[in-house]
Nucleic acid binder design. Structure first.
Lengths: 143, 143
DNA sequence: CTTGAAATAATCGTGAT
DNA sequence: ATCACGATTATTTCAAG
C-alpha cells in the first residue's frame, strides 16, 4: 500500500468504470503493472467491490428511513434483519438501541408494512427517523 | 426503462467494472446496442455514478458514527456540513433533529475533534450514535 | 517493473426492422 | 427509435526479460 496504490483507489472510488489503460496513464505506469496492482488490492480485500450508484427516485424507492431497533439480549435477530428487502445497511450500535437500519422503500406505507412484518415481532421497540431530503450520499473514504 | 434496462442496472449494481461485452452477452444484445443503453441511462440520471467500495479498516477509518444535529430554523448550515471531511451522508430529517450525518473517522478522538470544530458551533445540540459493528452495508436498490 | 504480441473489447458509422 | 453488422482503434492480458 504505497502512494501509487492510494492513487489507484482514489480513481476507482470516483469512477469505478475507468479503464485500466486510463488509470495506467494517470499514474504513469504500464497497463500490466497497473492491472496487477488492482488485482492485488481486490485479493487483499482493500477493494470490496464495484457498485453502480442508481437514482432511487427513478426506480420507485422514494422513501428513505433509518430505524433504531431495540432487542432483548439473547435474541439472534441479525439474519432476519439482513434478509429485509430494501435494507441497505445494518449496524450494531452502542447504547440502548441495539441496531440501526437504513431502509429504502417505495413509500411510507411500504415502510410501515415492512416494519410491522419483519421488525416489530423480533424487537422490543423501534424508533423510525424519516429522511425528508438527502444532501449528500456517497460511500467514498478520504484517502 | 424496460426489462433489459433493469437487467443492465442489476448487473452494474453488483459489478460496476463488468465489461460492456460481458453485459451484452448476458442480456443477449449486440455490444453496440448495450453500450447505447448504458450511455442513455447515464445521461438520463438513472445511473448516478460508479464507485469502488473500499475497506474502511484497511484505510485507517475504524470509526463510524451517525450524528443527529439540531439547528435553529434560520441558520444555513448545509454547505458547512457537506464540507466536513469523512461525512459520507447528510440527510435532512423529520422531527426535532434537523440533520442526520454519517461520518467516518480514524478513531473516537478524531470524531470528537471533528464535532467540536465543525458541528457544535453551528448547532443547538448533537447526539452521536456510535457503530460497534457493521453487518451489512451496500448502496444497492432492489430492482 | 517494462516491453511486446495476440486476443479481446470499445466505439462509431451505416443500414435494416 | 432501436437493433445488428462490420471496420477501426483501443484495451486487456500474458509471457518473457
Amino acid at each position: 500500500m504505497d502512494t501509487i496504490d492510494k492513487k489507484i483507489l482514489s480513481l476507482l472510488q470516483s469512477n469505478a468504470r475507468m479503464s485500466n489503460a486510463d488509470i495506467a496513464r494517470e499514474i504513469k505506469l504500464a497497463p500490466s503493472a497497473t492491472l496487477s496492482r488492482i488485482r492485488k488490492l481486490e485479493e487483499e480485500g482493500v477493494i470490496l467491490g464495484y457498485e453502480a450508484r442508481l437514482n432511487p427516485h427513478v426506480l420507485g424507492a422514494d422513501m428513505l428511513a433509518f430505524v433504531l431497533v431495540k432487542v432483548t439480549g439473547d435474541k439472534d435477530i441479525e439474519a432476519d434483519l439482513a434478509a429485509i428487502p430494501g435494507a441497505q445497511e445494518i449496524h450494531n450500535i452502542a447504547g440502548d438501541d441495539c441496531y440501526l437500519l437504513k431502509i429504502r422503500t417505495k413509500n411510507t406505507e411500504a415502510l410501515s408494512k415492512l416494519l410491522k412484518e419483519k421488525v416489530r415481532g423480533e424487537s422490543i421497540s423501534t424508533k423510525t427517523i424519516i429522511v425528508l431530503a438527502t444532501l449528500k450520499e456517497t460511500g467514498q473514504l478520504v484517502l
